[in-house]
């Protein structure tokens, strides 16, 4: 009896799945979990120290609470929520077209949307600066054509939102396309046959069944916006400070790794908590119909 338990304890090691996953697991452990643990450890080191062999302390967290970092957290969260909502509204019709209507043109649309990702984000954002700048492309054109000025656009919160929506559109769109294409047309026909209007079909059948795509696209975008900083810096100027900006400053200008680490830990915890809440509310398995 004892022998068999011993055996079954070692059994998992002989499992081909475990063996096959081993190299990737080791790589992830060193390349992904390692740095995260380092950041976690640094967040408990005394301020401005550059080594891990000091007595742990909560001083970084305490100083963050007493400082005005809550403003940066608020702006990051607010931007993430606004951008996700805007992207859902913008992307749903496009995704619907790509999944159901464009047929052979869908590949072309996919390519057109995906190609800009190959260009550096900063360069694309500077493109927007040229457009929105006072006497820039938009302002200048409006002035010479209609005599109207649109000079105050750059370095505002709407400009940041524009940039975020522009940069993260593919991350919402593509999961949404997959989500919508997962809804069989016969289900929509059946709903219509049973008397449902277009809006009722959308609410009762299409929306809940494309929820996995919506969730994945939404969470991906939400987390990415939460950690974004280029848009706020390039298009926002000094309009607002987002949390990722604070983290960067702490590591670079301030040379205060422990504080930057503590801010990072808080940001990771915040994103993790929100994602956890969302996944608890929406049971993906039930939505897909696996249960």
């Amino acid at each position: 009896m004892a022998g068999t338990t011993q055996n079954s304890k070692l059994q998992w090691l002989r499992n081909p799945g475990v063996l096959a996953a081993l190299p990737a697991s080791i790589f992830l452990l060193i390349g992904f979990a390692g740095p995260l643990l380092m950041v976690g450890a640094y967040s408990f080191m005394p301020s401005r120290s550059f080594s891990l062999n000091q007595i742990p302390t909560f001083e970084n967290y305490i100083s963050i609470i007493h400082d005005s970092y809550y403003l940066s957290f608020f702006w990051s969260l607010a931007m993430a929520v606004i951008v996700v909502i805007l992207l859902f509204i913008i992307c749903y019709p496009i995704a619907y077209g790509m999944a159901k209507l464009f047929n052979k043109w869908a590949n072309l649309v996919t390519a057109l949307i995906a190609v800009p990702i190959l260009i550096s984000e900063n360069i694309r954002l500077f493109g927007w600066v040229l457009i929105l700048l006072k006497n820039g492309i938009l302002d200048g054109s409006l002035q010479s054509l209609f005599g109207v000025s649109a000079s105050g656009l750059l370095f505002t919160v709407p400009a940041i939102i524009l940039g975020l929506v522009y940069v993260y559109l593919p991350f919402t769109l593509f999961p949404l396309v997959i989500g919508i294409s997962m809804v069989p047309d016969t289900l929509k026909e059946a709903a219509s046959d049973l008397g449902a209007t277009r809006w009722q079909i959308f609410r009762e059948v299409e929306l809940p069944l494309s929820m996995p795509g919506l969730m994945i696209g939404g969470i991906l975008t939400f987390v990415l916006v939460l950690g974004s900083l280029a848009e706020a810096k390039i298009l926002g100027g000094q309009a607002i400070v987002m949390i990722a900006d604070d983290i960067e400053s702490a590591f670079t200008f301030a040379q205060n790794w422990p504080k930057g680490s503590a801010l990072s830990v808080l940001l990771i915890a915040l994103s993790g908590f929100i994602v956890f809440l969302l996944f608890r509310r929406v049971d993906l398995d039930r939505v897909i119909g696996r249960r």
Binding site: P184, T186, L187, E189, A190, A191, S192, D193, L194, G195, A196, T197, E204, V205, P208, L209, R286, V287, I288, G289
Partner: peptide, 27 residues
């Protein structure tokens, strides 16, 4: 289709996978 007083049982049945038996019937 949604204005016709007729109804169809589909070859694939086209049951709503995200709804329970009762929710399907009462749709």
């Amino acid at each position: 289709a949604n204005k016709r007083p007729t109804c169809m049982v589909f070859q694939s049945l086209a049951l709503f996978p995200h709804k329970s038996v009762g929710e399907n019937i009462e749709f």
